[in-house]
Simulated assay, not measured.
Amino acid sequence: MPKFLRIGIHWSNVSGYTSKAWCVRRVGSVVHLKWGAVEVHGAGDGRKVCWSRLPQEKTIRCGTAQRAQDYTKAAIARRRSHRYEPLTGPITNRRPSAGRSPEPKQALATILIVDIVGSTAKAAKLGDARWTKIIGHYYAAVRKELKSARGKEVVTTGDGVLATFRAPAAGIACATAIQKAMRTLGLEIRVGLHAGEYTMSGGEMVGLAFHIGTRVAAKARAGEVLVSSAVKDLLKAQPAISLRDHGMHQLKGVPERWRLYRVEC
Rank of each mutant, 00 (worst) to 15 (best):
185 L>R: 02
174 C>D: 00
149 A>P: 01
143 R>V: 09
164 T>Y: 10
149 A>G: 01
155 V>S: 08
140 A>Q: 11
157 T>C: 04
179 Q>I: 04
156 T>M: 08
143 R>W: 08
143 R>S: 10
148 S>D: 12
157 T>R: 09
138 Y>N: 05
138 Y>E: 05
152 K>C: 09
171 G>M: 11
179 Q>V: 03
143 R>Y: 10
158 G>C: 10
148 S>T: 14
178 I>T: 03
181 A>Y: 07
177 A>E: 02
144 K>R: 14
154 V>M: 13
152 K>S: 14
172 I>V: 15
181 A>R: 15
163 A>C: 07
143 R>F: 13
161 V>F: 05
172 I>D: 01
180 K>D: 10
158 G>Q: 09
141 A>P: 03
170 A>M: 13
186 G>Y: 03
183 R>F: 04
156 T>Y: 07
140 A>P: 02
139 Y>E: 06
171 G>R: 06
165 F>V: 11
182 M>H: 01
183 R>A: 12
158 G>Y: 09
161 V>I: 13
168 P>Y: 11
172 I>F: 00
144 K>E: 14
153 E>R: 04
179 Q>P: 02
182 M>D: 01
150 R>M: 08
184 T>V: 09
154 V>H: 10
186 G>H: 09
170 A>E: 15
174 C>E: 00
149 A>Y: 00
182 M>W: 01
156 T>D: 07
171 G>A: 15
152 K>M: 12
139 Y>F: 15
174 C>H: 01
148 S>E: 13
186 G>P: 06
165 F>P: 09
145 E>M: 08
184 T>M: 06
149 A>E: 00
144 K>G: 04
183 R>E: 12
186 G>F: 08
186 G>Q: 07
184 T>R: 13
150 R>S: 13
176 T>P: 03
184 T>K: 14
173 A>C: 11
144 K>T: 14
177 A>Y: 01
148 S>P: 02
180 K>W: 01
154 V>D: 06
162 L>N: 05
150 R>G: 04
148 S>M: 11
179 Q>S: 07
137 H>T: 05
159 D>W: 03
156 T>R: 09
173 A>I: 07
168 P>E: 11
139 Y>I: 04
144 K>V: 04
186 G>E: 05
143 R>Q: 10
158 G>V: 08
168 P>S: 15
178 I>Y: 02
154 V>Y: 08
170 A>L: 14
178 I>V: 15
153 E>L: 11
178 I>S: 02
179 Q>A: 03
178 I>K: 01
